[in-house]
Write a protein that binds this DNA or RNA. Sequence first.
DNA 1: CATGAAAATGCGAAGGG
DNA 2: CCCTTCGCATTTTCATG
Lengths: 153, 153
Amino acid sequence: MTSQIRIDDLDREILNTLMNDARTPYAEMAKRFNVSPATVHVRVEKMRAAEIITGTEVIINPKLLGYDVCCFIGINLNAARDYHSALRKLNELDEVVEAYYTTGAYNIFVKLMCKSIEELQYVLIDKLQAIDEVQSTETLISLQNPINRNVKP
Amino acid sequence: MTSQIRIDDLDREILNTLMNDARTPYAEMAKRFNVSPATVHVRVEKMRAAEIITGTEVIINPKLLGYDVCCFIGINLNAARDYHSALRKLNELDEVVEAYYTTGAYNIFVKLMCKSIEELQYVLIDKLQAIDEVQSTETLISLQNPINRNVKP
DNA sequence: CATGAAAATGCGAAGGG
DNA sequence: CCCTTCGCATTTTCATG
């Protein structure tokens, strides 16, 4: 396992700030938290080295890119041992944006985004259910995503 | 609905780059895409104004912050009309990081992150199921998250 | 869409508490 | 050991053609 690291309140505040805006100037955080910009810099580098921070990304609005349909799909495999090969095939579908190995009713649980209900049908029937390892699927269509945030550092 | 906007290949390439690293220097993208840094700047501002880009954030490793447990919970409400009040209460639980209004078996579907199985039990019994509007829940524990990415611009 | 210059920000060495 | 000051390098930003 990756080495655990000591995170103090300053680290947490910096992290929290950057989780809301990855481009917050160090000088601004420095003023807010009463330290020097260089200290902020050092802390960020520390968390980066510890891989607590693994990167940055812009947040986009999928709807404005045409992605109107979001759904979750529970997948049952023919055999539990097919997990890895099924996953490899799922990974090749751009529409599959998240996949989870889960306990309970399904073997794999995925989040899928696509541009229309027609495309969803196509992906589901001709791509997902066409995977040999897939025995059956159950779809949950999301019409709204009222909460979307991250854990509290 | 928000105004749709024309996105060309350059926009798409810039977006794609920034979705992998929100701090990629404009000069670097400029060189890669054979335009000037100022052009990149203009395109980013355009997408920001159109709200295709809504912000930036650092990507963190939840495990290194102690969040070892991730699960999905399907929630059934006593009555469909309780949706808004239930959501307001769910929104107050820090452990609830995502919520979806869905068709099908559940009224609300949430993603939950917490620090241990003990905490999950506590949150589930004393916080989530303590909400008046909640009639029943079904939990799906995730042991692995092998795919986690965004849509393709 | 490019140029170029001014302003802001990031970065790292060296020193102090 | 962690923090700060300080100067240089890089990057962003904007007026102009």
